[in-house]
């Protein structure tokens, strides 16, 4: 897209998109939203760069270069959160601190293990979406040349 306006908007909007994505992840604990939709929105921010700047520029972005690592880190984080209670003799995915126990708050956000799990999902979804988009972009570019 050869449009200065679009380029400026895309560049300016990347960080706010991530901000919104993260907000949706956090909002999930009291309202609609979760790590999955947050991850999709975060990936959309990156995909916007592809559409406006083209593959060559966009793939220099760090989330694109490390898409695979982001996805796998996310998956490992989610799996680790799910399976750690098993090692402590509890059921899989039991959250800590448990119901009615004291949890540290940041504003209205409770720091519990489901939050870690959701961050894992967020990273996994974002990494996979960006990675798949990168593959598709390369596939179409190869076809043209």
């Amino acid at each position: 897209m050869n449009n200065d306006m679009a380029r400026q908007a895309a560049r300016l909007l990347l960080l706010p998109t991530w901000m919104v994505a993260f907000a949706i992840l956090i909002k999930g604990y009291s309202d609609s939203g979760d790590g999955f939709s947050g991850g999709v929105i975060a990936a959309l921010g990156v995909i916007m760069q592809y559409v406006t700047f083209g593959t060559a520029v966009a793939e220099k972005l760090r989330p694109v270069r490390y898409a695979r690592q982001i996805a796998l880190t996310g998956l490992l984080l989610a799996l680790a959160t799910a399976f750690t209670p098993v090692l402590r003799g509890q059921s899989i995915m039991t959250h800590f601190p448990g119901p009615n126990e004291h949890a540290t708050h940041i504003g209205s956000l409770e720091l519990t293990t489901p939050f870690l799990f959701d961050i894992g999902v967020f990273l996994l979804v974002m990494g996979v979406c960006v990675g798949v988009f990168d593959l598709l972009a390369h596939a179409t570019r190869r076809d043209r040349s």
Binding site: R68, L72, L76, L79, V86
Partner: peptide, 20 residues
Amino acid sequence: MLIVLGLGILWFSGVCAAIL
């Protein structure tokens, strides 16, 4: 615990092997 142990081993090692 045993019921998810095999599943956990395979899943974790699968993800780790994907990096390598």
